[in-house]
Design a protein around this nucleic acid. Structure first.
Length: 408
DNA sequence: ATAAGAATAT
DNA sequence: AATATTCTTA
């Protein structure tokens, strides 16, 4: 019979396969989409592999078939791989570079390690450490800031604090907001008194700082310290412009010594005190808290005022009895506890609300500085320096005695 | 819980 | 003598 189409002829079988593969490849080349190509290739390969399994049992009888199939599979697989490679490569190019940029030097290592590294992170450092450091530093920044700076800068006592704050301030910027919030939170209402921190105090010297081991602290001193610090803090906060490190230091000292540093009532302070008394209607009616608020002295505590008031009353009480005469004179006379505007007025004159007798002394408030030598309102700082020598605390004695002398 | 006043301690 | 601290009371 006639010719058998080559495709049907057993003899042509071998050719048939290659041809099909060729066609297949041709078709494949027309497909633009790489993933499609690959999937088709894979499908074809799968088919071949299936075929291979089928004839596996006959591999002895059909060695060439096996060979051809195997060959075809390999070739197509190869093709598939290349296809994928072509497709992937560009991506890799983009991806790798990025990676490099981030990771600088260690490209490969990191890549392979990544998975494991995360687990090990805790122990390992490099990157981790860096991060930690950064984080820590930032934390420190605001933390420290808070501790040292925020409480109060100027502080009645010294200005040493500035340096530390400065340096920190720059770095800690980022956290400032937080800090600010804190500050506000703490201050609450924050009356707008304008304290004269400078005035504050003359600090006599600190005696020896015993080591009262606050830790032991079961005793009274401990509770004391706590109380005080609380009060102190309150006070300092109330006054807007800061007091400062000094408070911190004071607290610290306190803790160590167990006893609060003595407040020296400088003449200026006392003057303020008296002034406040007058405004409040006299020593007998004025309360420590009121007085303190009127005085507007940064860092001054209720207890301190209370104590001073107690003394003041003691002294003024006596006088009235002996010095009956003087009393009536004052406008505030009676009020001032026995009318003893006593020395206060004489010495510091500007006693009350000002307008009255003051004419002569324009110095009024400014005197603060004058007393100690110098600086006006800011005084405290300068005072400090001078104070060692100058700091004379207010002398009740003199007042007490003078009146008597006069009387006698 | 706080403040004032009196007593007492340092 | 001058302040600080404690105790009591309101």
């Amino acid at each position: 019979m006639g010719l058998v189409p080559p495709e049907l002829s057993l003899d042509f079988r071998p050719n048939f396969v290659p041809k099909t593969i060729t066609n297949f490849l041709r078709e494949l080349s027309l497909i633009g989409n790489v993933s499609d190509k690959v999937s088709k290739l894979d499908a074809f390969v799968k088919g071949l592999e299936e075929e291979m399994k089928k004839i596996d049992a006959f591999k002895r009888e059909l060695p060439l078939c096996m060979l051809l199939l195997n060959d075809a599979i390999l070739v197509l697989k190869e093709e598939s791989t290349q296809c994928m490679a072509r497709n992937v490569e560009p991506v890799l190019e983009e991806f790798i570079p990025l990676k490099n940029k981030e990771e600088d030097n260690h490209s490969e290592e990191d890549g392979s390690l990544i998975t494991t590294k995360k687990e090990e992170d805790c122990n390992n450092d490099c990157n981790n450490n860096k991060d930690k450091k950064n984080w820590m530093s930032s934390v420190q920044l605001w933390n420290i800031d808070d501790d040292y700076c925020s409480p109060d800068h100027k502080l009645d006592t010294k200005r040493n604090d500035e340096d530390p704050c400065k340096s920190r301030g720059g770095g800690g910027r980022g956290f400032m907001p937080f800090k600010a919030n804190l500050g506000f939170a703490v201050r609450k209402e924050d009356k707008q008194e304008v304290p004269v921190h400078g005035l504050t105090l003359s600090t006599p010297g600190i005696k020896n700082l015993k080591e009262e081991s606050s830790s032991t602290g079961s005793r009274s001193s401990c509770s004391r310290a706590v109380t005080f610090s609380a009060t102190n803090a309150r006070t300092s906060f109330r006054s807007a412009p800061p007091v400062g490190l000094s408070n911190h230091l004071q607290q610290h000292q306190q803790q160590q010594s167990g006893r609060k540093q003595r407040r020296c009532w400088s003449p200026e302070l006392h003057r303020r005190f008296v002034k406040a008394l007058q405004q409040l209607g006299g020593s007998q009616v004025a309360t420590p808290k009121q007085i303190r608020e009127l005085m507007q002295v940064d860092g001054l505590t209720n207890d301190e005022v209370k104590s001073h008031l107690q003394k003041y009353r003691l002294h003024t009480r006596r006088l009235p009895a002996t010095t009956t005469t003087s009393t009536p004179a004052n406008q505030s006379g009676l009020v001032l506890g026995g009318g003893h505007a006593w020395m206060c007025q004489d010495q510091f004159g500007e006693s009350s609300k000002g307008s009255s007798s003051q004419s002569g002394s324009p110095q009024g408030p400014l005197q603060l500085a004058t007393n100690t030598g110098g600086t006006s309102t800011t005084g405290c700082e300068s005072m400090e320096d001078d104070e060692d020598a100058k700091s004379e605390c207010y002398s009740w004695k003199s007042h007490d005695q003078k009146p008597r002398k006069n009387n006698v």
